[in-house]
Design a binder for these strands. Sequence first.
RNA 1: GAUUCGCUAGCUCAGUAGGUAGAGCACAUCCCUUUUAAGGAUGGGGUCCUGGGUUCGAAUCCCAGGCGGAUCACCA
Length: 572
Amino acid sequence: MSLELSEQEIIRRNSMNELLSKGINPYPAEAFNVNVTVNEILEKYPTDHTLYQEISIAGRIMTRRIMGAVSFVELQDSTGRIQIYIKRDDICPTEDKSMYNIVFKRLFDIGDIIGVKGFVFITQMGEITIHVKELKLLSKSLKPLPVVKEKDGEQFDAFSDAEQRYRMRYVDLIVNNQIKDVFKKRTRLVNTMRNFLDEKGYLEVETPILQPLYGGAAARPFKTHHNSLDMTLYMRIANELYLKRLIVGGFDGVYEFSKDFRNEGMDRFHNPEFTQMELYVAYKDYNWMMDTVEEMVEQIALELHGTTQVQVGSNLIDFKRPWKRFTMYEAIEHYTGIDISQMDEAQIHKVAEKVGAEIDETMGKGKLIDEIFGTVAEPYLIQPTFITDYPVEMSPLAKKHRSKPGLVERFEAVCNGKELCNSFSELNDPIDQRQRFEAQLDLGRRGDDESMVLDEDFLRALEYGMPPTAGLGIGIDRLAMIMTNQTSIQDVLFFPQMRPEKKAAELTDADLKAQGIPEGWIPAIRKTSYKTIEALKEANPNKFYNDLGGLRKKLKLDVPMPTLDEVKSWLS
RNA sequence: GAUUCGCUAGCUCAGUAGGUAGAGCACAUCCCUUUUAAGGAUGGGGUCCUGGGUUCGAAUCCCAGGCGGAUCACCA
């Protein structure tokens, strides 16, 4: 953050001070009552020109076209943009024209938030416009806003730098209005899902985010510390084990939209914090859950798009039920022609090599199968497809398959080449569950830092008896990406995680004064390449003296040139 | 983590045999009573990401670093 202001920022600060001196509060406290939105006017006025003859509306100035005693301004509120028409003699009915000539024309800027009163009409150019009778500043903007222009859907000078858009999402939302639609759709997606689950009678619950043990997924956690208890706590990586405890406790259906945290890499599909919806329903199995997922996601597509078909990149994806269902073996056979269902580990290893899966010698049968699937099938599954019956080794919380040894009752929905959700008939046999945890502990001892830890309290809960239960985890961010046609998770998160902004080292006024440097010279010293007192002290006094002379001229500083000895004392 | 591309005015971007840094919009001043990506004229504005090196001279070439994008790897 530079302490120095740009020319335009200085001008705006001066404008603000001038407003103050004219008795205009740039940040008034009192409410400004709004009785209409832009969107309402644009929708309803064309059908009835008697409407909106006494309106009060507020928003941000986005463009200004000043034509002498008449001006056109584009005002943006939360619903859209509308043109307003300001005529000098309307807002300045008396002899004093300063409200228009000075306050509006000189002291207002693009980005300022204003309130206007007036009536709606249509200009000669045929544009719906507000004829302003009163104008009031509601908030002065001190930073120049990027000015994005648009014609026929084409943008000019778009504010497009991804880094700045994510770091300053507020600016992105102001000038790239279409961004708002993505986030509105995301919220509608969540609301649709919530309504769907509520209507089925399931209970929305909240479970701990700070957990003494992390579980329910294979991932590295964020670790923190509680001072009073003097204990390590983890940010949850999933909420599965807590929701199952609630099923043990006697709820038939519970769900939670949960922010989960995983201490892993970041890319366009991964953010360290992300949102999942997890659902657990007693007395159901994974077949039932597949039907439920289909129904829920189809409903979301209909709610957001009015159709089951959604354009995602170059693919048109149709969420209409029923979705294709493949077992994992069938999917592999479908794409390779090879049936691996009866093969032993050595044979499967050969298949994995043949299809070019990335494998290593530590991989067991289950992992090999998963790699084959990930190589030959998953990327090609564009239309929503259920993949069922996974190897037991990779699913320590899923129930063993009722009829297929070595497999578990688990499915994932795959769509656009990516996993959408994960679900199983939940393992409720406490003896089996303990053995699976112990197998995970073995993996951990062999160095797998994402293996699960053993949760004794969870096992105790299972020992009291959990009904047969179907469970589901569905990635809300990923689903939002598909439903809004975004290629990066950063585009469906308001504030994606970023590395901290580089802080430019700054010499403070106090530091410089402590060196005996007169205040008038401080701007010049800021312009030098010395950014710390230490660097300053090591500077060559003669070079520094010469630099100051040059800067004095360049900055037109009205301060006397010091002697070389004085400058040397500043550096001591 | 690897590869690769990028970083120049408030915004979007030009800019090489290495020789005082440019455009459009934005901003300022003046003119203008219905304009619409921008009405006209004039003008101001830069740590060319940072640090080092090569050179008489670096936005430009070399090295290191920072931040970001893309691809890959890792990853319930």
